[in-house]
Amino acid sequence: MIYDILQYDFLQFAFLTGLMIGIIAPLLGVFIVVRRLSLIADALSHVTLSGIALSLLLSKNIGSLANLNPLYIGMGFSVVGSLFIERLRAVYKHYQELAIPIILSAGIGLGVIFISLAKGFTTDLFNYLFGSVSAVSQQDLLIIAIITVIVIGTVYLLYKELFLLSFDEEHAKTSGLKVNAVHFTFIILVALVIAASMRVVGILLVSSLMTLPVAAAMKIAKSFKKLIFISIMFAEIAVVGGLIISYYLDLAPGGSIVVLSILLLLTTIICRKIQAKTAWKGEDAS
């Protein structure tokens, strides 16, 4: 495997991309999960799907756009979708979760229209839906590297604001924090990470990389910083393991990564249960 990675560019691109999204997806996922916004990632990934479908449609029908990287329009749709979610959350103040199914169905609806106009599925679209080891180009790698730097840098600079917003939004407001600006920045980052992750994990499974490692880490972590660290560690195990499995078994990497994440989650839950039982037995014995 290591020999193959050294030999083939596409494998190097896939692994480097995987390592980067293994950091940024759970890094934002931690804030998404504790703020109970897990489904936002799903809504945005479906909006990204419609952007990808439009890009593929344009590439097919307009000669000058034949080499257009679908990541650009996908990213654009994802960012615009995030803005619409925020707008809808403001409109439905008492039913903010409504914004998610509205944007999710709008994303699927538009996506299906573009796919129909393009006369059905193409291999490219399949790769975007479920991820691909071979589809990551050098240009994708560069875009994802830029997004990684932006995401890590912004989270580092806004860490304490994001923590306060996640832990107690009302307190953040009363302390005079610019809550809307921080939340807006955060949601744009989420949109960028979703667009960045879809090459390897696939649009339909991208939200799992933001939530499953965090769900597993939550069973162990006692502090917020440890939660971030353990989530990233779990995500990297799932991404690297998933890519290796998918390369050897010729599977879509998205599926392998998600299945590995779920196995990690189950293992953590079982270990915690055994630990709790052992502790009770220890107490009873003494």
């Binding site: 923590f163 306060l164 924090l177």
Partner: peptide, 18 residues
């Protein structure tokens, strides 16, 4: 949410954010 994974120090120091 008492399940929020944060230490007492992380919560108290967050009061200094602004």
């Amino acid at each position: 949410n008492s399940g929020f994974p944060a230490t007492v120090e992380e919560v108290v120091i967050s009061g200094l954010t602004k």
